[in-house]
Every structure is written in C-alpha cells, then in structure tokens.
Amino acid sequence: MDFEFLSQTFVALLPGIPVTLELATLSLMLGAGLALAFAVVRVRRLRPLNWLVIGYVYVFRGTPLLVQLFIIYYGLAQFPEIRSSFAWTYLREPYWCALLALALNTAAYGSEILRGALLSVPRGQIMAAQACGMSGFLLFRRIVFPIALRQALPAYGNEFILMIKATSLASLVTLADVTGIAARIIAETYRPVEVFVAAGTIYLAISYGLILLVRVAETRLNPDRRDPAPVAGVGAARKEVTP
C-alpha cells in the first residue's frame, strides 16, 4: 500500500463529501415525509390509497435501488412526452434523478418502519388522550406521533446509514460524489485498492458521525431511559375477583 498516494487520494475525494451528504440529507428528508404519509394511509387503511401504497412499497422494496435509479434516469428519458414536459427540467439532470430514486426508495422502507411504530403505540395511551377530548390531528401530533417516533428511531437510524452508502450509486449516473470521484481516479491511475480504501474510510467516518447523532437523539427523546428505570408495583399482582 502506497501511503503517499493514499493520502493524496483522500484529499482528492474530499470535494465529493458535500455531494454525498447533500444527497443523503435531502433524500432522507423527502423520503421521511413521504414515508410518514404512506404509513398513515396504511395504518388508517384509507382506501383506495391503501392499495396503492401497498403496491408501491412492494415494488420499491422488491427491486434493487440501482434498477430504480436506471429506470428513472434512462427509462423515463425514452418517452418524448416526458422530455417535452415540465418535469424534464428536473429529470434531465442526473442530480434530481438520483435524489428522486433515493427518496422514493427510502420512503418505501421508512413507511414500513413508521407503520410498525405507529401500530406499536399502546392502545391505552391513545384511549387516555381520547378520553381527554383529543382526536384527529391533535391526537396524532401530540400523542401518537411522538410515541411512535421514539419507537421508530433505532430502526430509522439504520436506514440513515444505509442511505449514506446508497448515495454511492449516484456515481453511476455521472454524479461526482465520493464514489464518482473515486471511479475517476481509478480510471486515471488504475489503482483501485488504495482509492477504494480511501473512499471506504470516508463513508465509515460519515456513518460513524451519523450513529453518534442518532444516539444523541435517542437519549434526548427518551430521558427516562438514561439509566435503568425502577418499575415497581405495576401489574405484578393483578387481582382477579371471581364469584
């Protein structure tokens, strides 16, 4: 391993980090918004939207992200109707295509995470809110969503990390993210090992930072779980009275 070349490569890859981070951040934000909407449709069983969302999740979880990216980037471009439409302003740019593919993909996974989290909100806590006169959006915003969010965070943190790594596929539609620059350096130097080691290190560092962030968020949102909670007298001796 040539360490001088390795450090040069590392420096050359740095300009790709903002592209990688921006793609990951924007797609996760967009995707989470969609995921929440989809999860609510699923939990509420709003027909016929429910069926559409089920189909959507099935397709986007059942096909590789790379295929989705290529269908959006190369596939949609085949249709003259799309090329002459307003959407082409965005779809002609690799950046927006990559962002769209990433966001749609994470929305499918995210909606399942959030659906599970929404379903796990204890029925009794919802009933207590209803008994206080809360319903509809107020009930969702104040009670259901905050509890579901705490439930979803560990799994969603995983999804964050998967998405950081998934952004590397954007290089295949010519974007100069960390992987895109890495591919270019390999093309010029024919030395893949050092370049991939440098790129891998960068992804590792980003992921590690993200893991820390998620951990901080978890601690913030669950102050009661900071150390083991003493639980006494709950349900230990439920009295059953029979005649």
Partner: peptide
C-alpha cells in the same frame, strides 16, 4: 444489477 459496483468487484478480485 447489484449494489456492488463493478469497480468494487474488480478491486476485490484484484
């Protein structure tokens, strides 16, 4: 169609 880019595969092979 794979999440491994072909370049990565080549590097592993190498």
């Amino acid at each position: 169609v794979t999440r491994l880019t072909q370049g990565t595969a080549a590097a592993l092979i190498a």
